[in-house]
Design a protein around this nucleic acid. Structure first.
Lengths: 110, 110
DNA sequence: CCTTATTATCGTATATTTACGATTATTAGG
DNA sequence: CCTAATAATCGTAAATATACGATAATAAGG
């Protein structure tokens, strides 16, 4: 290694952005999960109604129960929520760990 | 207004999340824009090659030129990049203002 | 002008997403 | 057990996204 100082002719990156493989796919998946108005609305509702049951979410959305159920499935699969059986109903919670991970990564990236 | 202290029986929201209308749609649109592996890869490349020309991006992606062009169009439409004619070529830059706005909103939300 | 380089757009095929009604589990209460 | 309440799944239709090759548009150089 020489003692000369390195110089760059292009603009420096604003961050390292060392995401690869599974981590990168996971991040893209989370982006995709929230890239839908209905699903965003669900997340927004959960901020003030964390742990509510599915039926409550169905009531506040203008779509059929089956459609909302599908959206919830996507939100679960992409890591935004956790669902747990609560008698005959299902309780829906924000997946705080994943959400924090997402926010962290977005903060680092770009 | 009374002097009594308000109490809540449900868990407090972690933030205000006062997004609505156009702002909310814009955020969802940006989520959607990055919710694709190829488009994420382009953004990642731009971090270290900001201002590069389209052909360079075509070269590093495993897809046809037409496909990459479409992805660039989406990234532009959803506010992630800016394109500007550079002779016969097109220079691609990160839309820093929008990116910062996005990061800010994601930081506030959820 | 003609050619080359570069990128966008067109037309199209395939896959995925989104939405719905209908049906099927699952749980709780009587 | 039967019924009601709740939510998931099925089957399917329509819309959107993704990908490609072919073609068109644009700019620069000779």
């Amino acid at each position: 290694m020489t003692a000369t100082t390195k110089t760059f002719s292009h603009s420096e990156p604003c961050c390292t952005l060392d995401l690869t493989g599974p981590e990168q796919r996971r991040l893209v998946t989370m982006f995709n999960g929230l890239g839908n108005p209905s699903r965003f609305e669900i997340m927004k509702y959960l901020v003030t109604h964390n742990g509510c049951i599915t039926g409550e979410i169905v009531d506040i959305l203008p779509q059929a129960q089956a459609t909302v159920s599908q959206h919830l499935k996507v939100l679960e699969k992409t890591g935004w929520i956790i669902r747990s059986t609560k008698g005959a109903a299902t309780s829906v919670c924000l997946h705080e760990a994943n959400i924090n991970w997402f926010k962290e990564k977005v903060g680092e990236v770009f």
